[in-house]
Amino acid sequence: MLNYFANPRRFMKLSGILTPWMAGATLILAGAGLYLGLFASPADYQQGETVRIMYVHVPAAWMALFCYTGLAISAAVGLIWKHPVADVAARASAPIGACFTFLALFTGALWGKPMWGTWWVWDARLTSMLVLFFLYLGYMALNSAFDDPQRGTKASAILAMVGFVNVPIIKFSVDWWNTLHQPASILRMDGPTIHPDMLWPLFLMIGAATAYYLWVLMLRMRRELTEGRVRARRQIQAEEAGA
C-alpha cells in the first residue's frame, strides 16, 4: 500500500482523477451545509443567532487537529520509509492546517465577544489552539530554513513527530493550569446541548472542510511534484547545452 503510492507518477495519475471529485464534494457539502446552517436551522435559545458561527468555527477547530495528525503521520512515513510522496504531503499539509488553526482562533474570538463579553479568555482550549498555531509556524519556518531542501524536510519531519508527542502533554498541562487559575467570570465553556437540527449542518460543514483539505492538499502536492519535474528537466537541458 505504502509502496504503491511511493511512485510520484502513480500519485499524479490518481490525484488527477480524485481532485475534481474532491472539488465537487467540497462545493456540494459546503453549499448544503450553508443552506441548512444559515436558513433552515433555528437560532439557539441561549446564544441566539451567534450560534451560526459554530458552523464555521467547529469545522476549523476540527481541521486544525486533523491536519496536524495528517502532517505528523506523513512526516513519520517520509522519515522512516523514505517515502518521497509522504514528504510532499507533510509539507503541503502545513499551510492548510495553519490557516484552519488561525480561523478557529479568529472565529472563536468573534463568537466569544457577544457570548462571554470578551474576545479572548485564557481558557484551556483556546490556549492549546494558540500553541498548536505556533507549532505549525515552527514547522513551516524550519522547513524553509535550509539551503538544502532535503535537510529542511528531514529536520521538520523530526520536529513534527516531537510536536505530535507533545500536543497531548501540552493540552494536559494547560488543562491543569486552567483549573488552577479558574478565570473569575461566568463563562460557560461547555455550551448548550446541541439541537439535532444543528447537528446536520455541522456535520455537512465538517465534511466540506475535510474535502477542502484533501482538495487543496492534492493541488499543492501536484504542484510540488510538477515543480520537481520542471527542475529535473531544466537540469537535463543545462547538461545537454553544456555537453
Partner: peptide, 12 residues
Amino acid sequence: MGGYAGYVWPSY
C-alpha cells in the same frame, strides 16, 4: 442576524 451581524458575517 438578530443584532449579531457584526460577529456572524465577519467570521463567515
